[in-house]
């Protein structure tokens, strides 16, 4: 088999666009999922028994579903119930609904490491549950939180490729299109695989840097 890299060159802008969409989906999906995860954690820690129950049931359902099935449910079944939704929105919604419980679990685990007395002290000072979460719990658990969140984020980044099945124009979708034009699957997929690998490695390095930054108050002790 002869390898023909030159045939790829005209299609690089297509791949670049696909890559940009993948990056946007990753960060958009992660941001939404994180937001929802925080909501889930607050709901279980400050909400009533009915709310807690709903969160638990929802979490159980998600943990038992492949993401592809959730995606199909949202993209093909919701419209039949009268909820029309675009493919990008369906993609982001899927990533959000699917990854929020995992993130919530990571957050809950990290928060559990904070002694309950710190929350008592915060309540006595008058902080509300959101302030307690953001001002007291999150800052001191970020160091514990970043490693599991990095794993989840990378999982989410990889799963954006699944959105190609509903024609979201992300990197995997763009790759399939280019292959169908150039008939050079080896070259295109090898290039794209390298691209995914590079991007995910960069993400991991970035998160590790971040981890170093947020745990500085522990290491440096007294120096402000």
């Amino acid at each position: 088999m002869s390898v023909d890299w030159a045939a790829l060159v005209p299609y690089l802008p297509d791949l670049a666009r696909g890559f940009a969409v993948t990056v946007a989906l990753t960060f958009g999906g992660a941001a939404c999922a994180l937001f929802m995860a925080i909501g889930l954690v607050l709901a279980t820690s400050a909400g009533g028994p009915a709310i807690r129950r709903s969160v638990r049931i929802y979490t159980e359902i998600i943990l038992g579903l492949p993401i592809l099935v959730l995606l199909y449910l949202i993209y093909f079944v919701l419209p039949q119930l009268g909820l029309r939704i675009g493919e990008v929105a369906a993609g982001i919604l899927t990533l959000t609904l699917y990854y929020a419980p995992y993130m919530a679990e990571a957050i809950r685990g990290a928060i559990a490491s904070v002694p309950a007395g710190q929350v008592d002290a915060a309540r006595m000072i008058g902080l509300n549950p959101v302030q307690i979460f953001i001002r007291i719990l999150l800052p001191q658990t970020l160091g514990l939180l970043i490693p599991p969140l990095t794993g989840i984020l990378i999982g989410l980044a990889k799963d954006t490729a699944i959105l190609s099945v509903i024609s979201v124009h992300e990197l995997a979708y763009a790759t399939k299109r280019v292959v169908s034009r150039t008939y050079t699957p080896f070259e295109v997929w090898a290039l794209v695989a390298g691209l995914y690998w590079l991007a995910l490695s960069a993400l991991e390095v970035l998160m590790r840097r971040l981890e170093g930054r947020v745990t500085r108050f522990r290491a440096s002790g007294a120096s402000a």
């Binding site: 002290a121 915060a122 008058g126 007291i136 800052p139 402000a224």
Partner: peptide
């Protein structure tokens, strides 16, 4: 919370927030 702010409490285990000075 507002009513409770009229009461201050000091705990056996201090319960300071370690990430704040």
């Amino acid at each position: 919370r507002h009513q409770r702010s009229r009461i201050g409490m000091v705990f056996q285990s201090f319960n300071l927030w370690p990430h704040l000075t």
